[in-house]
Design a protein around this nucleic acid. Sequence first.
RNA 1: GGGCGAAUAGCUCAGCUGGGAGAGCGCCAGCCUUACAAGCUGGAUGUCACAGGUUCGAUCCCUGUUUCGCCCACCA
Length: 887
Amino acid sequence: MAEKELAKVYEPQSVESKWYGAWERAGYFHAVAPSGKAPYSIVIPPPNITGVLHMGHALNNTLQDILCRWKRMSGCSVLWMPGTDHAGIATQNVVERQLAAEGKDRFELGREAFIERVWRWKGESGGQIIGQLKRLGASCDWERERFTMDEGLSRAVREVFVRLYEEGLIYRDNRLINWCPRCHTALSDIEVEHEDRKGSLWHLRYPVEGSDRFLVVATTRPETMLGDTAVAVNPADDRYKDLVGGHVLLPLVNRMIPIIADDYVDMEFGTGVVKITPAHDFNDFEVGRRHNLDMINVFDESGVVNAAGHQYEGLERFAARQKVVEDMDALGLLERIDEHALALGGCYRCKTVVEPYLSLQWYVKVGPLAEPALAAVREGRTRIVPQQWENTYYDWMENIRDWCISRQIWWGHRIPAWYCDHCGGITVAKVDPTACSTCGSDEIRQESDVLDTWFSSALWPFSTMGWPDRTPELAAFYPTSCLVTGFDILFFWVARMMMMGLHFMGEVPFREVYIHALVRDAQGQKMSKSKGNVIDPLTVIDAYGTDAFRFTLAAFAAQGRDIKLAEERIAGFRNFANKLWNAARFALMNLEGFDPDAVTLGELELSSGDKWILYRLNEAARETNGALADYRFNEGAMGLYQFTWSEFCDWYIELAKNDLYGDDQDRRRTVQYVLWHTLEHLLRLLHPFMPFITEEIWQALPGTKPAPSIMLAAFPQVNGAFEGFADAARNMDRIMAVISGIRNIRGEMEVPPSREIAVILSCDNDESLRLMKHNEAAIISLARLSSLAIGMGLEKPEDASIQVAGDVRIFVPLKGLVDVEEEEKRLAREIGKIDKDIEFLGKKLENPSFVERAPADVVAKEREKLAEFANKKRLLEESLVKIRRLR
RNA sequence: GGGCGAAUAGCUCAGCUGGGAGAGCGCCAGCCUUACAAGCUGGAUGUCACAGGUUCGAUCCCUGUUUCGCCCACCA
């Protein structure tokens, strides 16, 4: 067995690539169904195949991996289902840009060739994010990796579409939709992002027929007047009552349009007159339907004015706006222009301003699907964490509108509907039909639209497991245990999975949904390419290592709060990884020749220090399990950080040195065992957070391994035997207080560590005396003493510095160390601090209502504290008086 | 317009069911103490946004105010 030399500084790169490959090859990520073990399953939020790993992915997948590794180690059969999303519009855009660079467009290629080209692109450069997830350490079951357009999932999509159609939950309708004039497709309501912008409110005069009056309408979109088919006023508005039923002459196009009355018009706003453009405004559309108005579409699918716009035909919509305003002005029909704030809707893929557009589209009737999805959360069958998001979910589900699912692009699941040229009937079928189901004609054409990308991702939790077949995976792993996602896709994805899962599986898709925060930059701004404030996770990984990065994300992941990622914090956790590494180096150096297999805990005689660290380790296990069970990732991470650094390294390792370097072979063996045991368990606790470094160290530890990888070792649970060490742990706390007291004098008096000092401890009871004597060696070495005298009721030497630690008085003779003036100042400072405490507690205890009404144990505790402070103050004052006498 | 969240040390943030506020970084002082200078030891630093209320007691619960941030919404 060649003992390898561990470098002084942890180098993540080689360790990471080595272990990830080994784990994957060994099949540790693979879930077997059924297995007899308790199932735990998570489906990954499938990243777009166009995607490149960003901070959001890094956080999302780190948290999922922490859960999966923790559950796997806790004895569950874990399925983490990975895959990617075909991302219809986004992917089509990428390939279209490529074509444009070659001076071509998709229409030249034709539909089939274009789709082929997209598949080719996917094969060559799509899905690079998978490799990036592996660098992050994600323990996904890659053997099961799925793609939303692979054969199985396409079959599921088809099945769902046909069934919903047959149930009357999918229909076609001609109405206004959000249209992206750049992507040339319809968008669903939530695919439109509203942004507040400054705009103008143009006031236009429309001449009233048969009169010299004008009606002044206010509009934010003057170009749409080309499609006006009415003006409306409120029926209760006395100003215009006489005009209702009459007409105005629409300028520029010179069309007579009616003056109608509708409650929709707000008398208070503007002039109280609204121009009605049913084909280009959602409200106007409703008004138009109520009044049977013509709906004149004045744009083509690129947002260019069409023939209905007369002389403006061929003008792009914003150019048309300018021209319309100019022409109205020239006619003296532009009354004025006000500044006006408005929320402009943009395409979520390309940011182009969307156009309300009249067209025939496919819809899902969501009301009947939303009901059960609401009930499931209300009844707690799916729990949303943090709970505050439940309200957002309810609000949306309660006000949900039908979902436009057709997209006029080519890349995606083509809608399985065929139109009959002969009878006009529609055939919807799972298998491509050869004839019209109504008239039998074979002159049928398939719908050219594809489905919204989110239609297929809504099926993800069951389609990835083989639905509509009844598979062992579905039986074992559906419903999934947990979904980890950001709130930005709560509506897009989570809500729709709830609806589809309940409808087709009869059961919720996941028991819990953990909604995590957004990762922002150090200034709290959303990271975006245009702002140039993007931190690339892979750059961070290269610079600091995956483990440090993951630990940073976990430590920051407090519930309900955005993460502001500052690079210094990552460096801090890189230091933590290095600290762990060096603690391990220390352990390995001192465990040479030690065989843990030959030792059992029961045979060992444990010191206070040994019991203390085992007790604290046990508490750390309790806290980590509790934190992860509640998705308190930050508490889990920070708790382990504190245990590792402030307890294990700062105290136990220092304590252990005494015995490791000493002559007592029994003590040496005992400490070796405790050191080994603590480190070994600590590594397991840390493994979900820092998978690589923990495996590397764990493999180097002596002893027979319970598993071939730490991934498969049992996650530490609370050990009842260690809970009995609570008293010993408290004793150790007293020893530590004494050591800290001595160090305090040393630090305050600026005595360098190289200078060993003599110390006297004075106890006031036997128990205390025994405890101090028993831990004499530890005190001497940790406080760096030349000598230590311990006794009962000892007198303070005249020129000694004093410190009080519980019931122990600490005297440090100052002879030749420092002058008494310094000691005088230090004592005055100490007394000053205590005075404040005494004053506060005194007031509290003098308050009769506190003593009467507060719980007895609280009062007793406060009294105890006061007595302790008073005692400490007395001792310090005595010595201050004596010190002064020396001058 | 509706809803949600935040305001705590110089900075970035923790703080579970009310009992004198914590971490990391930074700062000051002293240290190459044979695991680690990416380190060790000691230290300083807070009207817990503001104003009321409940309570013996409020950073925590209630009301209001201010300032930020986000989400939703068809007022031209």
